[in-house]
Simulated scan of single mutants.
Amino acid sequence: MSGAGGITGAQQDIAAGDIPVDTPRLPAREAAESELSKPMYHENDPNFLQRALNQFWDWVAGVFDAAAGAAPGGPAGLAVLVVIVIGLAAALWWRLGTPQRSTRSTDALFDSTGPRSAAQHRAAAEAHAAALRWTEAVQERMRAIVRSLEERALLDPRPGRTADEAAAEAGRTLPEHTARLRAAARSFDDVTYGGRTAGQSAYLSLRTLDLELDEAKPLLPGTSRGATG
């Protein structure tokens, strides 16, 4: 009777729905992932920037570890190599100085303080010369020369024009002064971009050229050189 009673009790439990639950693996994993994805489990996680920085520093550490492993003497040898490279760079910097711009094609003749007349540039040049500031005097006198040619319509006003370009263009209408215009442009470039200092003779040369150009007659289209003057 007891055996029959036990079977009957088990049948009643099954009938009542008390079947032991055996959850399949895939739904169980999905349930766990869903639970762990809740914000309460990620409040202290690093943000995107922190994760990116951590990955970057891990990469840097890996690079140094690889370099230390390849360098003779390990980390100590790598440190010696770094010191040698820094020393060589410092020696080159001391020997060569600050790198200068290799091209002058983008070095404009006039600064960005606004347009000034030839008379204003001449006055500024004379003021610098009176104070023995020959470098600034040369710069202002060259600007006065170019501005004067623009005011006489011998040069088209063009922002960004360099001293070399102005000398080349002016030489086509004032061929008798081509060589001196180019020399004046070189003097301007030397003191402005080449780090050189000008002297009194350089300024007086530009001043004389400025005065002569002011009286020079341009070579008009269709006119030969022999007809000028």
Rank of each mutant, 00 (worst) to 15 (best):
G160E: 13
L174N: 02
A166W: 06
E176M: 14
R152G: 04
L155R: 00
R143S: 12
L154A: 06
R147E: 01
I145C: 06
R186Q: 13
G160N: 12
E150H: 09
R182C: 02
L155V: 07
R152C: 04
L155E: 05
H177F: 13
A166S: 15
E150I: 08
E169Y: 11
L154G: 09
A184V: 06
L154H: 05
G160Q: 11
R172G: 08
P175K: 12
L155N: 02
A185C: 09
V146G: 00
A167R: 01
A163H: 08
A168E: 15
A185I: 08
E176K: 13
S187H: 06
V146A: 09
A170F: 00
A185S: 08
D156R: 14
F188P: 00
L155I: 09
A163T: 05
S187V: 02
R182F: 03
L174K: 01
A184I: 06
L154C: 10
E176L: 15
S187K: 03
L154T: 03
F188N: 00
V146Y: 04
T173R: 15
D164W: 11
P159V: 05
E150Y: 05
E150K: 10
E169T: 07
L181T: 09
E169M: 15
R161S: 05
A185M: 05
T178R: 15
R147Q: 07
I145Y: 03
R182T: 09
A166C: 14
R186H: 07
R158C: 10
A167I: 12
E176C: 14
R147W: 03
A167Y: 03
R180I: 06
R152M: 07
I145P: 01
A167N: 07
R180E: 11
A184N: 01
E151M: 11
E165G: 13
A185H: 02
R172Y: 07
A179R: 14
A170S: 12
A170K: 00
V146D: 00
R152L: 03
T178C: 12
R158Q: 10
T162S: 12
E165M: 14
G160M: 13
P159L: 02
E176P: 12
T178H: 15
R172V: 08
R161L: 11
R180L: 10
T173E: 14
A167Q: 09
G171Y: 02
